[in-house]
Simulated scan of single mutants.
Amino acid sequence: MLVRALVVRLFGVEYKVQGVWKLLHRHGWSPQVRARPPLEQDDASVERWRSEVWATVKPLRRPGTPTSASRTRRDRA
């Protein structure tokens, strides 16, 4: 929303959120990827957070064997 407001203020053109996303994507911008890491980032504290906190809150992995939503069992003869 901030980018959308900035476009309106600077250029006087209103876009919907999807339109702003398309403009940014067209110019190589992505909300998931940073151009560079922040200057004030402390790598040691990030690693500590990953090992201590993220390990307890990350989602469980899916089982290794494929499952089926079917109610019938295939092992019956």
Score class of each variant (00 low, 15 high):
R26H: 08
Q32K: 11
S51K: 10
A5Q: 12
T56I: 04
P66E: 09
P31F: 04
S45W: 04
W49H: 01
V57Y: 00
S68P: 00
G64Y: 02
T67E: 13
V7S: 02
P31C: 13
W54C: 01
A35M: 12
L39G: 00
H27S: 09
V20W: 02
T72Y: 06
P31D: 02
H27P: 01
R73D: 09
P63A: 11
R9H: 12
A55E: 05
Q41W: 09
T56G: 03
R9Y: 04
S51W: 04
Q18G: 09
D75V: 12
R48H: 01
P63Y: 00
S70R: 03
G19A: 07
W29L: 15
G28L: 14
V13M: 07
E40D: 15
K22N: 02
S51I: 11
A44G: 01
P59C: 04
A5F: 05
S30R: 12
Y15F: 14
D43T: 11
R50H: 05
G19W: 01
F11E: 05
G28N: 05
L39H: 04
K16Q: 07
T67V: 12
V3S: 07
L24G: 02
A35P: 00
L2G: 12
G12H: 01
S68N: 03
L2K: 07
V3A: 14
R73E: 07
R73N: 05
W21N: 06
H25Y: 12
G19V: 08
T65N: 07
R71K: 10
L60Y: 04
Y15P: 01
R76K: 09
Q18V: 14
W21F: 10
V13I: 15
G64N: 00
V3M: 13
W29H: 06
R26K: 14
A5R: 15
V7Q: 04
A55R: 03
M1Q: 12
R62M: 10
H25V: 15
V46P: 00
T67K: 10
L10M: 09
L60S: 12
T65H: 06
L2F: 00
P59V: 11
Q41E: 10
T67A: 11
R62C: 08
R76Y: 05
Q32D: 08
L6T: 05
A44S: 08
W54N: 02
Q18A: 14
R9T: 04
S45R: 08
Y15T: 01
V53F: 00
V20I: 15
V7P: 00
D43Y: 06
W21S: 10
S45T: 09
E14W: 03
V46E: 01
R71N: 03
T65G: 08
L2N: 05
L60M: 13
V7L: 13
R48A: 15
Q41M: 13
V3G: 11
E52D: 02
Y15G: 02
P38T: 07
L6Y: 09
H25N: 13
V46T: 00
F11L: 11
A69V: 12
D42P: 01
A5V: 09
K16W: 03
W29Y: 15
S30M: 07
M1T: 14
S70M: 02
K58T: 05
V8G: 00
T67F: 06
S45Y: 00
S30I: 10
W49E: 04
R50I: 15
P37T: 07
L39V: 12
R73H: 02
T72L: 14
V33S: 02
V57K: 04
R9C: 05
G28D: 03
H25L: 15
L24E: 01
Q32V: 14
L23P: 00
D75Y: 10
